[in-house]
């Protein structure tokens, strides 16, 4: 599904992440593990096309990301990648449902209110559709963010430390939700986490060593 080859990324002269080779098949669930500062977030950004590697190549779904222009890369990301950021970053000006409709709109997908409502319902938050993000609990907000990442049925679903802010029970539940959503849309799942509580929820694991 994706293949990384000879990846190195530097911020200035500092090496942030190094991945000699890593590839995944469609539908696989991966845990991206490693201590803080080992470059997990950076690697997710490289996979999402939010960063271009200083060296090496990133191919996702047969597409070499280096071949895409900046604008084309933005459009590609909208269509093929679902991204769950650590701090969720729901748009505070928009309701839960509108956050999902925004994702459809920006990805160039047709507006599908019923579909968005269905995804929220599948995550057990169908009744929160019209609530504003600042009225939601952390767990509810995370479900909205997961829904937003999955709404366009991405081929690649990325999550950055999704359990850092959650208690034990919710941490496992969140990992389960991500896996369920990935299954539902047929996405390859990569969860970056150093959280030992969810280690066993993933069949596959890629370990990053602390860089430099």
């Amino acid at each position: 599904m994706f293949a990384l080859n000879g990846i190195e990324h530097r911020f200035g002269k500092t090496l942030a992440v190094r991945v000699p080779a890593w590839s995944a098949a469609p539908g696989e669930r991966w845990l991206l593990a490693g201590p803080s500062g080992s470059g997990k977030s950076t690697l997710l950004h490289l996979l999402a096309g939010l960063l271009r590697p200083s060296q090496g190549s990133v191919a996702v779904g047969g597409q070499n990301l280096a071949e895409l222009s900046d604008t084309a890369l933005d459009r590609w990301r909208g269509r093929h990648v679902g991204f769950l950021p650590q701090r969720l970053h729901l748009l505070a000006s928009l309701s839960a449902l509108d956050n999902l409709l925004l994702a459809q709109y920006l990805a160039g997908a047709p507006a599908d209110r019923a579909g968005a409502q269905a995804v929220l319902a599948a995550l057990d938050i169908g009744d929160l559709a019209l609530r504003m993000p600042d009225t939601l609990s952390q767990g509810q907000a995370q479900r909205v963010a997961i829904a937003r990442a999955a709404i366009n049925r991405p081929a690649l679903l990325l999550a950055d430390e999704p359990t850092a802010a959650l208690d034990d029970a919710n941490a496992l539940a969140a990992a389960g939700l991500l896996a369920a959503q990935a299954d539902a849309v047929g996405a390859t799942l990569v969860v970056a986490s150093h959280d030992g509580r969810i280690r066993d929820a993933f069949a596959r694991r890629y370990d990053l060593e602390a860089a430099a």
Binding site: D70, D74, R75, F83, L91, R148
Partner: peptide, 11 residues
């Protein structure tokens, strides 16, 4: 918000 919009595919 702007970063998220970019992540969601906005140029």
């Amino acid at each position: 918000d702007l970063a998220i919009m970019r992540t969601l595919g906005a140029s």
